[in-house]
């Protein structure tokens, strides 16, 4: 882990009409650190993720990312071109539904290679070798490189989506309920895979989840959101084993195996 955070947000707020979706949310994230954002549906988790990832402009507050070459940059003040470049180089975004993050009409290899091609890679052989490498990294058979994601199971699609994001070796990955659409047995495998990748690649990640078990296995730190506000933060074992806020206690008490 390095000495400075790579992402910091201060005073984030967002309203949808009369409803307050996010209020006074601040956080810092370091390289190699996984932060789980937990809370019920409607707690503002996904809104927070969208604001952090530059996909939704907050009504107030700032989000800054420490870029490789230009130091701190305000995510919402940078040009769309600059943000898009960031999105396909240093960032990844794993959607809950793999279909939202994949191109379902092209092969697995093309899905993985797209970021490289968008960055100007023009050697077919190299792009294909990279795609095969990352397919193996997500524990998929390289022989399936030319298959369409339509032929894949939900778990495989999710792994493909992850490979597609990792091919440029991002430093920060946003994940929106990455396991919740999957069967329990498939979930365990995916969590384990993510855990290994995050550690091996020293990724920073923000994982939005309502599954405390997933948070326990993946995250170093946790942030509990309720009605758009942070009610508790701490190391994952602190929040889950010694919850302070009434809402966190209720959340932990009602989970099957946190």
């Amino acid at each position: 882990m390095s000495e400075a955070p790579i992402l910091r947000a201060a005073g984030l707020a967002k309203r949808f009409g009369a409803r307050l979706a996010l209020a006074e949310v601040s956080l810092e994230l370091w390289e190699g650190e996984v932060l789980a954002v937990v809370g019920e549906s409607g707690s503002g988790k996904s809104t927070l993720l969208a604001c952090l990832a530059g996909r939704m402009a907050p009504d107030a507050g700032t989000v800054e990312f420490r870029t490789r070459h230009e130091g701190w940059r305000d995510v919402h003040a940078m040009s769309e071109a600059a943000r898009r470049l960031l999105e396909r180089t240093d960032w990844g975004f794993v959607h809950q539904r793999p279909e939202d993050g994949l191109r379902m009409t092209v092969s697995a290899g093309a899905n993985i290679g797209e970021r490289l091609m968008a960055l100007g890679a023009r050697r077919y052989g190299w792009i294909r070798a990279q795609a095969a490498h990352w397919l193996a990294q997500v524990e998929m058979d390289a022989a399936r490189l030319d298959e369409s994601p339509l032929a894949f199971s939900g778990g495989m699609r999710q792994r493909l989506q992850i490979a597609r994001n990792l091919v440029t070796r991002p430093r920060l990955v946003f994940m929106d309920e990455p396991t919740s659409g999957l069967d329990v047995s498939v979930q365990a495998r995916l969590v384990d895979l993510l855990r290994g990748l995050v550690r091996r690649l020293s990724l920073a990640a923000i994982v939005v989840t309502h599954d405390l078990g997933v948070a326990r296995l993946l995250a170093h730190r946790m942030m509990v959101l309720k009605d758009g506000r942070v009610v508790e933060t701490g190391l994952t074992d602190q929040v889950l084993d010694d919850p302070h806020h009434p809402y966190t206690q209720q959340l932990v008490a009602s989970a099957l195996a946190p």
Partner: peptide
Amino acid sequence: RRMHALADYGLMHVKLYEDIAR
């Protein structure tokens, strides 16, 4: 249209990649 605005044309090579792969 946004892709044109940003000259973000990786997608077009995806199509050609698909051709070669197939």
